[in-house]
């Protein structure tokens, strides 16, 4: 699903990510951990081609990121669902419209869009808020709309950047359950977090710890050190 070899990215003379190498198989759940500025968000942005890689090799969902351009970027992104800490939803549009957007850009038929969006909103328990403008929803509801938008397209890979960062612990746990549910259906998930409590909620997940743009721990190769525990 993801194959990275010495992937690097620099802002001028600063290396935000250096020689990152790992493979991620289909259906894996990966936590990217590390302090702020460790390179977690940069890595996620590289994975969905929001940033161009500076060096190395990367393959995501069968797309070679080094050769990715033009319409192939949109084709890659159709395979990926992305969830952000700040939701990135359109506040004036309703929950339904926000989720439907991901299907509309694929040119899907209206009746099919209606059916799929309703189903996802039901799973995420916000069906009753379908026609409420998102600016009137709570933070947790807005985040569920963002998750609904990312999963409605049945993605191969979900990238989540601190998805529970703005939510209280109770709501965070409920949203983690949603991610676990989609993971159970076989979706590959990469979640960046610096909230260590999240890790304990998915005991089977792999952990990659970043510091200063480098991998300092990969739980598939070694045991997590103290401080990085489940």
């Amino acid at each position: 699903m993801v194959r990275l070899t010495r992937l690097s990215y620099n802002f001028g003379s600063v290396w935000a990510l250096k020689d990152v190498t790992f493979n991620l198989g289909k259906g894996e759940f990966l936590f990217l951990t590390g302090p702020s500025g460790a390179g977690k968000t940069t890595l996620l942005k590289l994975l969905y081609a929001a940033l161009p890689m500076s060096r190395g090799a990367a393959e995501v969902c069968g797309f070679d990121l080094a050769r990715l351009h033009g319409r192939h970027v949109s084709l890659l992104r159709r395979q990926i669902g992305v969830v952000f800490q700040d939701f990135k939803i359109l506040p004036k549009k309703t929950a339904f419209d926000n989720v439907a957007l991901a299907l509309e850009v694929r040119g899907m038929a209206k009746s099919l869009i209606e059916r799929r969006v309703r189903a996802v909103l039901r799973v995420l328990k916000i069906e009753d808020k379908s026609y409420v403008p998102c600016e009137r929803l709570s933070g947790g509801e807005q985040q569920r709309v963002a998750i609904a938008r990312s999963v409605v397209v049945n993605p191969s890979l979900i990238l989540a950047d601190e998805p529970t960062g703005n939510l209280d612990p109770g709501l965070s746990r409920r949203l983690m359950d949603v991610f676990k549910q989609f993971h159970a259906y076989g979706t590959t998930i990469v979640m960046a977090t610096h909230n260590m409590d999240m890790l304990a909620m998915v005991p089977s997940a792999r952990i990659i710890h970043l510091e200063g743009g480098r991998i300092t721990l990969d739980s598939s190769e070694q045991q997590p050190p103290e401080g990085v525990h489940r």
């Binding site: 949109s74 159709r78 990135k88 850009v105």
Partner: peptide, 16 residues
Amino acid sequence: LDEVDILRLVGARQWY
């Protein structure tokens, strides 16, 4: 532009 960012994120083509 926030709308443009989101459309790009969900895989919309440039003309769309």
